[in-house]
Design a protein around this nucleic acid. Sequence first.
DNA 1: CCGGAGATCACCCCCACGGGCGAACGCCGC
DNA 2: GCGGCGTTCGCCCGTGGGGGTGATCTCCGG
Lengths: 212, 212
Amino acid sequence: MTDATPIRLLLADDHPVVRAGLRAVLETEPGLVVMAEAATAEEAVARAAEGDIDVVLMDLQFGRGMGGAAATARITARPGAPRVLIVTTYDSDADTLPAIEAGATGYLLKDAPPEDLAAAVRTAAAGRTTLAPSVADRLMNRLRTPGTALTRRETEVLALVAEGLSNQAIGDRLHVTEGTVKSHLARIYAKLDVDSRTAAVAAATGLGLIRR
Amino acid sequence: MTDATPIRLLLADDHPVVRAGLRAVLETEPGLVVMAEAATAEEAVARAAEGDIDVVLMDLQFGRGMGGAAATARITARPGAPRVLIVTTYDSDADTLPAIEAGATGYLLKDAPPEDLAAAVRTAAAGRTTLAPSVADRLMNRLRTPGTALTRRETEVLALVAEGLSNQAIGDRLHVTEGTVKSHLARIYAKLDVDSRTAAVAAATGLGLIRR
DNA sequence: CCGGAGATCACCCCCACGGGCGAACGCCGC
DNA sequence: GCGGCGTTCGCCCGTGGGGGTGATCTCCGG
């Protein structure tokens, strides 16, 4: 367990307190060294490109500008890119799936104990995946019941419903007829086992299928 | 500025990383000493009752059990109670108002720079209030346009709408007729300037009037 | 003591929404 | 080439939800 070269870290989070916490927790660990911090996603992308980082601890929600998922995609796109370990507060399909698609190596929640954090960093540095238990649970459920998954179009419709638009307004926005929107909604209701638009929005937000 | 006795702190947050961050940020400040940490609201209430705490740094969202607002109420209810400074991630009316009602001395967001945090702690120890700019803004708007404020009952109805319940189901839940629910909703729509239940939910979540 | 605000209920009208059914079309994998 | 899936559209019909209006009662503060 005594590595010759330490694992070099980049902390990307818009909260100074969280960065200080991660630094405090990780710097006490042997074999880990915090190289830099980034307060925005853009900053993180730029810093990661310098080539002296092994693992990026990435938050998903930044106040302004690029999101953590987009930043992850840009970082992992480069050859010889560092591993990206997502460390965020909330977990939902709307967060986890884009992050995983973007090439994140692991997904942890901020309520994780320090030991788990350090262990996940080492696992990520080795190129292997660590998932928070709740995230792993939901991924398993998703694989078990593929019928529940909404299609891209259905998610799009439901997101507009959640914004409070009428079926006609949604049809206009998506350049389809109101009948098509109702058809999509009927399938959505069946999949979510509900019978009204508000219940669908409630169920979808609960399952993390749509944001907010 | 050189106090004879330091300000004694209690950190209450369910995230170990955040506690470590707060500790790291505040312990470097002269005149501040972290006495204890609490990972749950119940723990914070118990620890604050011991009488050797001047300022409690309190999160609002705890994973399980009591919330930060309830804990704040219990702490401030005791004579000679410490000051409670709310330090949370998101700000919305649904969060700030209960916390202020519960007797919080200040309300900061976690994206605040360390200097502001330390300054707010000192201000709180002196019994004076510090509010994050965004929180102050919303409170001012609220005072300027009191018509927008929903009544307790209206908020209750709207929260059930957001859960996807029908008017009849809401009436049953609140032990009133469906007509009364529709009456409440009509005034909610007028206040929020919308014309459907889903739009009302969207507007209310945007304004932070209801949770989630 | 009275006025205003909040909560409750009733009545009417009407349309958007939801349920049921059927049917095209394009894309993809077998 | 065929079948499944996703997306699109159409039609009918019934009801829940939204708009308007008005009324009663309680509580609280001036």
